[in-house]
Amino acid sequence: MKRLVGFCASPRAAALLLGCIAAVSAYGSLIPHRRAAAVFGSRAFAALCVLLFLHILAGGIASLRRGRREPWFALLRLGALLVLAGAFLGGAAGARGRAQLYPGRETASFTDARGGALEPGFTLRLDRFTVERHPGGRLELGISVPGEEGMALHPVRLGEWTGPDAMRVRPLRYLPDFKIGDGGEVLTKSAQPNNPALEVEVRAGGETERGWLLARFPAFPPLGLGRTLREGRVVFFDRGSERVKSYASEVTIMEGGRPAAAGRIEVNRPLSFGGYRIYQTAYDPVGWQWSGFTCVRDPGLPLVYSGFVLLALGVTLWAGAGEFGP
C-alpha cells in the first residue's frame, strides 16, 4: 500500500497522468466538436482528472512531510487543486440552459444540453432587444450578362456608369433601411443598414429603366427593372453591413410575479442574479427579432478563480522573480 501511495505521489505518476490527459486532449482537438464534448465529458476523462487531483494532493502532503520549502511550488500545487476542485464542483452541482425570447415575452425555464428544463426559480422577461451593425463597408454590384460565365463585381460609385457594354448600370441613390411609405414613396426607416437598397439606372437591349436592388433579398425580382433585366442579372452587395457590431437585451427578472431586478445584458456583460449568470449568446440572424440567452450556475467558479490567482502568483515567483532579478 505504501508503495502504491509512493508511486501515486511520484514524478513518474505525474508524467503518466499528464501524458494521458495531454494525449486525450490532443485527440479531442482533432475530432468534431460534438464528439470531443463526449470525450471530455466522459467518466474516463473525469477519472483521469480525479487521479491528477489526488496526485497533486499526495505530492503536496509528501513535500510538507519532507519539509521542502518552495513557496512557488506550494502555490502552484494549491492553485491547481483549487482549479480542479472548482471544476469538479461546477460539473457536479452546476447547471446551464438556453432560451430564445421575443421582445415582450418571458420564460421561467431554460433548455439544457440534454433537452431537459433548467428552472432557476425566476422568470426572465425581454423588454427590448437591439442589434447594432457596422455601417456598410463596401458596396458592390454584381453584373452577369448572357453569354458570359460568372458574375463580375464592380464597386458602387454613385452617378457613374459601370458594367459591360451589353448591360450598363448607374447607381443613383443608397438607402440603408429601405421602405415604401404609405403614399408609395421610397424612404429609409433608420440610419442602420437593416435593409440596404440601391437605386440604379440600367441600360440594356436598347432600353433604359430605373429601379431598386435590395441587398438582403438578392433572389427577389428587382423593383422596376423588369424589361432591362429579362436576360441579365444585377445584384447589389452591401458588404460589412451584415456584420453585427453589438447586440444587447434589456431584461427584467421577475420573482413571484414581481420585478426583482432589471438590467442590460450584452456579450461580455452577463447579468448575475440569484446564483445564476445570464449571458447574451445568440440572436436571430435573419430578422433580428429574437434574442438568445444562456443561464449558468457554476458554484465552483470562486474556487477556480482563487486557483487562477495562486497559479499566477506561483508562476510569477518561480519563473519571474527568480530569473529576472539582478
Partner: peptide, 22 residues
Amino acid sequence: VWANEAWTTYWGWDPKEIWALL
C-alpha cells in the same frame, strides 16, 4: 476569465485552448 464573461465558461475545450495548455 474573459471566456467566462463572453462564452459562458472559463474552459470550453476549444482547440486553441487545448493546444495552449499542451
